[in-house]
């Protein structure tokens, strides 16, 4: 029920935006994300954009992967720091 999918905003006309998701164009309501701009990625739920996707944060999550889980040598090096970082913002 809370299923929501990412989409990119193509055009904006007042509270309606044209978006593209998985190659399909669609019109959605953007009243809940008033700051959205053309080119932003949004999360769409039942015809409404409910949040703008933070690209930087998406990249940070990717970094988290790269740093700790893809490069095994890198992981060894960072292991201690990684577990100690448990209570600060280091590990996301």
């Amino acid at each position: 029920m809370c299923l929501a999918i990412p989409a990119v905003v193509k055009k904006i006309n007042r509270n309606i935006a044209e978006i593209e998701s998985l190659g399909v164009l669609k019109k959605i309501d953007i009243s809940l994300v008033p700051d959205v701009r053309k080119g932003d990625y949004v999360i769409v739920h039942a015809g409404f954009a409910i949040q703008v996707i933070d690209k930087e944060e998406a990249l940070i999550t990717e970094d988290y992967w790269k740093q700790y889980f893809t490069d095994e040598a890198g992981f060894e090096d960072n292991e201690e720091e990684y577990f100690e970082a448990g209570d600060n913002e280091d590990v996301q």
Binding site: L32, P34, I43, G86, Q92
Partner: peptide, 30 residues
């Protein structure tokens, strides 16, 4: 993994692992 780490460190808190979409303040307008 993050849950296991919290238990290991006895450090229970709300942690966001879906940061691209979930901000600590949520969507205040909505």
């Amino acid at each position: 993994h993050a849950i296991l780490r919290q238990i290991t460190g006895n450090d229970f808190r709300v942690e966001i692992m879906y940061k691209s979409v979930v901000r600590p303040e949520g969507n205040p307008v909505a």
